[in-house]
Design a protein around this nucleic acid. Structure first.
Lengths: 338, 338
DNA sequence: ATGAAAGCGCTAACAC
DNA sequence: GTGTTAGCGCTTTCAT
């Protein structure tokens, strides 16, 4: 843990000469430079990060808040982001918030203290409270959601996948195939996620002048079990639709399991499209909506790097377009039975 | 971004009084303290992390090197670790090394610079080279592997799951059931991982005086595809064993798929145990070996925190015992056909 | 080409 | 109780 002072003494030069020699900036005579570099190596010199940060006001770190560390969805984002960060010699400081608003606020405070130079903020729930706090922080932050501020005066960048459009496309796909009785299993309408997705579904119906049948719409909580329950309700009601759009893969798989148990053939009796395009979906040949998580991560990191570099850039919002990954569960196979 | 100096000026006191008031250490008269706190709030004061680090020599961060960011296995470790770190007000700085030795070395250098106060090092390959570098760094590092140093003079702690024993248990389970023709699909013997696991398998055979039949042992690369290939070879050779121990779930699933396609009934014709106890294993009712990744993470973080607190602690190695998660693919069902 | 010195913001030992 | 002062280790301006 030698410092430039010790090297300076050993080399018989001043600390500033050592500094110049070691980082290659400014004039140093070749022989002195060589000597200094040699001594530095011998004495095991390494620059002190804290001292540099204090001077440069850069920590080379970015706070990365994720609400659910078990969800592969998020680690694909992390992967995408780290790729870009790495190019800039930055590293993510991970914080598993579990969606806890208090922890989110705490991290925002840490951010202000210089724990990181910026933050990529992923949350289940962006609301006026935490977005206001982000604005107040005055720090570079990128939200990975579509947040429409009431007054449009937000100080952060956004990157998001248009889930509205993803669900809309899935519904449209079925409609174009001639289906008219299309069911939906979604999330709670009280959350942004739940609302956005369901709107996409409704939109597709409306565009095609298909009357909404409330009995075909079920609410789950994004777990496999809730998918099972929702499907079971449809069966019990004797209102099995021709096709089913499900707001995530896990619920879709839950629904598929019930169908399998009860002899409902997929896609023959019921076509299904899920959402997330998870490994499980690929594995089970479940059609799904591809969310390009890595793209979100990469874009979020890019925007953040750019803003750290230049804080007074215009705010930007990047909308990413999801795509359908069509597989077996939505295959045309037989003609629809209704 | 007010500093204690500005607050001091505003309050008409000295910077040290402000420091004392704000962090509650030392004597400050109640009224001054109140005034200072009020001003701090008004002026939006936040302590500067870099300055504190420079003084305290603590960054409140820990470097976390992982070789594969797509593997849920590692995220479980991260989850376990963050739980413990959080209790100590520490955060992990993530580095996706992709197993690149150069990056590993780079991070070790970053560690020395004070980028973090310690490091949790997960790698595909611990060898004399990188372990020597860890020793030379003089920094607190925990390895998540069983590394037996040639000279036993290593300066790091270890936490590991005994994969040798896990595989041994799986093989023993089959042997106890009366099987004698047991196959194995493992990883490359040139890697520590591959070697360790295969040794566990061999050990079980030897203990039970079962002759090894080389034709039943196949090598894959831990991908599903390689599992398929290995199983196909067994089939082509007409040497389908009674039971199969596979060194990870992905390869086991690959093998299962081939069996399904070719009408080999599991567990009736062939019993299988995989390793990792992944989500997929649970989903597909594949018996597997539970590796307690969260436990690894928790223990690694705990050891690291303790060593950062007290660098001259004795080196410790924690061995974690895996357990069998027995499911459908290894069920007794019918009597073995050989 | 090199060195002296100030300063990044906070802390803590010591003096009053 | 409160203020002075000297660092922590590096960078950078400004003389020389």
């Amino acid at each position: 843990m030698a410092t430039i002072y010790e090297i300076a003494r050993a080399a018989g030069v001043s600390p500033s000469t050592v500094a110049r020699a070691l980082r290659g900036s400014g004039y140093v005579s070749p022989d002195k430079r060589a000597l200094i570099q040699k001594l530095a190596r011998e004495m095991g010199y390494v620059p002190n990060h804290a001292a540099r940060s204090l001077k440069s006001k850069r920590s080379q770190k970015v706070l990365f808040l994720i609400p659910d560390i078990y969800n592969p969805f998020y680690f694909r984002m992390i992967k995408g982001a780290t790729e870009v960060l790495e190019e800039h010699q930055y590293f993510p400081v991970l914080c598993h918030t579990k969606g806890d608003p208090a922890l989110e606020m705490k991290m925002l405070s840490n951010l202000q203290q210089g724990f990181g130079d910026g933050m990529i903020f992923v949350s289940f729930d962006f609301n006026p409270k935490n977005t206001a706090a982000v604005n107040a922080s005055g720090c570079p932050v990128v939200l990975t959601n579509n947040y429409q501020s009431p007054d449009g005066r937000d100080a952060f960048d956004c990157v998001f996948v248009d889930t509205f459009d993803g669900i809309r496309m899935a519904a449209q796909h079925f409609i174009s195939r001639g289906f008219t009785r299309i069911g939906y299993i979604g999330g709670n309408i009280a959350t942004q996620t739940g609302r956005e997705r369901f709107s996409g579904f409704q939109h597709a119906l409306q565009q095609n002048h298909i009357a909404a049948d409330q009995r075909l719409f079920k609410v789950g909580d994004f777990t496999m079990e809730s998918g099972r329950r929702a499907m079971q309700e449809l069966i019990d009601q004797r209102t099995i639709p021709q096709a089913l759009v499900v707001a995530n893969d896990l619920m879709a798989i839950g629904a598929m399991r019930v169908c399998k148990e009860q002899g409902i053939h997929i896609p023959g009796d019921l076509a299904i499209i899920g959402m997330d395009n998870s490994d499980l979906a690929q594995f089970l040949d479940l059609s799904s909506i591809q969310m390009c998580e890595e793209e979100i991560g990469r874009n979020a990191a890019r925007l953040l790097m750019e803003r750290i570099e230049n804080p007074k850039l215009e705010k930007r919002t990047i909308r990413l377009q999801p795509s359908l990954a069509l597989r077996k569960t939505s295959e045309a196979g037989e003609a629809p039975a209704g």
